[in-house]
Amino acid sequence: MSKNQAQKVREYAKIVEEKTPKSRHVRGCLRAFWVGGLICVIGQCFTNLAVALNLSEMTAPMFTSCVLIFLGTTLTGIGVYDRIGKYAGAGSIVPITGFANSVAAPAIEFRREGMVLGLGARLFQLAGPVLTYGISASIVFGIIYWAVKEWLL
């Protein structure tokens, strides 16, 4: 690229930045906080309910996860979760309901391309990277934890 062209590109980038409105981060954070918080409160209610129903400490969180995944998937299916997501942003993406949404949404979208190469192949299109790096990271940290416990403590 010539010097002249590089100069033009830099000047243009400045114009674009000047003319482009910024995302409203403070408003976004507040919305994410209260919606995300509300989802967590709902989760805690189910955990308490599970404990009250005499489920063990190990199974109560699992019960909660199942309920939240069910809710997230159902809300995706009836076309409500994308509206919540539009309002709350990360507030509804980060909790487990967002994970359910990211699996259910491609399932609905790509059903038309068939059960195997459509739905089957695309189901984890969005959740796949989370699984790949989530599982990889837990293996790495598991090894570190084991090594520290074995040799250093």
Partner: peptide
Amino acid sequence: ERQFRLPLEMGTQRTPS
């Protein structure tokens, strides 16, 4: 949307631009 961006029911935000 399905070709260039995300499935319709994904709950994400779009940028102002």
